[in-house]
Simulated scan of single mutants.
Amino acid sequence: MKAYTYINVFLYFILLISSGCRSGTVSEITDNTDRNGIIKYAGHLKIKHYKGFTTMEVINPWQKAENLSLKYFLVNKGDSIPPGLDKSRIIFTPVESVILMSTTYISMITALGRQTVIKGISGTDYVYDEVIRKMIKEGLIHETGYEENLNRELILKINPELIIAYGIGSESAGYLKKFEDTGIRILYNADYLEENPLAKAEWIKMFGTLFCLSEKADSAFSAIEMNYMNITDSLKRAGPFKPKVLLGFPWQNVWYISPGNTYIANLIKDAGGEYIWGDLKSDHAVPMSLENVFIKAAEADFWLNTGNATDIEQIISIDTRLAGIKPVRSGKVYNNNKRSISGGGNDYWESGALYPDIILKDIASILHPGIFGDYELFYYRKLKE
């Protein structure tokens, strides 16, 4: 089954499932689970149910944060507020209007069928989803600006119930606090910090809780998890050989190396490959000179994620020495920009956040040709000469 068919059937299936927020009937669950063990992989998210409300914790919401937990209290609209809750941290559910500070949240909202709650997006030019692009064109979704240059007047006019943001440091809390002072709730999403591909996808359960669609979110994630596991099981047929993989692309004579404890490195491992920087551990990209990378790249069998390049000629135009890298010479260079549009929108970064199973199958098919028969790459494409 082609990947796009899988997504369409999957969305149709979960839209058949309905769920509402429960009111005053849920006893406290003392560990990091809910009724079905909701949080299995995510290390930066906790959800717990109590009688009359739900708590949501975002743990260490930005890089280098330590022992920091942002707690939110979710209370059903129309219910009385339980005593003792910090009213400044209450989010009333179901949430019906949001502004998104990242396009990566779109796929999770779309999977739950709640596109109409989106009233603003930071970076509308980078949206890939056709439905959301149509809503932008029709004026139903607005461009809200970036970080310190957010359009404060427009955001206050929209007056969303919630702004969903990512934090890149404590300074993020500073420029968004002015909106909290007006009564708009700010929820930090730390999915980009998850190292396990399934952990990142599991953040759909946060959106499910916000929209009173927990059962849909649980079903959505379970289908993705099952498919991911089935793919890894299929890769046992590939045998012990693990092709070595080079990642990334130089920028102004510096190559920012993704460490071996990252999301993409774990995808390569699960796809039956060996990342050449697998032993490098860090909480951020590590800058290296091109010379050092060229030496290490001699080991690589494949080269993936080559920036914005659409062919080999573009790669060599950056530095002619790149023509000597083994994957270039052997024609094994692939980029994750097959589903991209003019303006910069790339579906790998959008729907790929929710569907690591499809990314996994793409990478596995590249590293082990033929293992999935005539499977057609979804996010990736081979770069031509």
Results as ranks from 00 to 15, higher is better:
residue 160 P to V: 03
residue 172 S to N: 06
residue 77 K to Y: 15
residue 58 V to S: 15
residue 318 I to H: 08
residue 114 R to N: 07
residue 180 E to V: 06
residue 147 E to H: 09
residue 223 A to P: 15
residue 75 V to H: 00
residue 245 V to N: 05
residue 318 I to F: 15
residue 262 T to V: 15
residue 79 D to G: 10
residue 146 Y to C: 13
residue 350 E to C: 03
residue 282 S to N: 06
residue 240 P to S: 13
residue 226 M to Q: 11
residue 223 A to W: 12
residue 284 H to D: 12
residue 287 P to L: 00
residue 63 Q to D: 09
residue 224 I to G: 11
residue 74 L to E: 00
residue 233 D to G: 12
residue 100 L to K: 00
residue 302 F to L: 03
residue 73 F to L: 06
residue 355 Y to M: 13
residue 274 E to K: 08
residue 62 W to A: 07
residue 80 S to W: 09
residue 238 A to S: 10
residue 265 A to N: 13
residue 57 E to I: 04
residue 12 Y to E: 12
residue 78 G to S: 09
residue 345 G to L: 01
residue 311 D to T: 07
residue 123 G to Q: 00
residue 16 L to P: 07
residue 45 L to T: 11
residue 259 P to A: 09
residue 378 F to V: 06
residue 353 A to K: 05
residue 270 D to T: 03
residue 8 N to H: 06
residue 124 T to P: 00
residue 367 L to P: 09
residue 89 R to L: 04
residue 90 I to T: 02
residue 142 H to N: 14
residue 135 M to K: 14
residue 252 Q to H: 15
residue 201 A to Y: 05
residue 109 I to L: 07
residue 94 P to L: 11
residue 66 E to K: 11
residue 367 L to W: 02
residue 77 K to T: 13
residue 129 D to T: 01
residue 99 I to C: 07
residue 296 K to N: 14
residue 36 N to V: 13
residue 71 K to L: 10
residue 17 I to A: 04
residue 9 V to T: 11
residue 67 N to S: 04
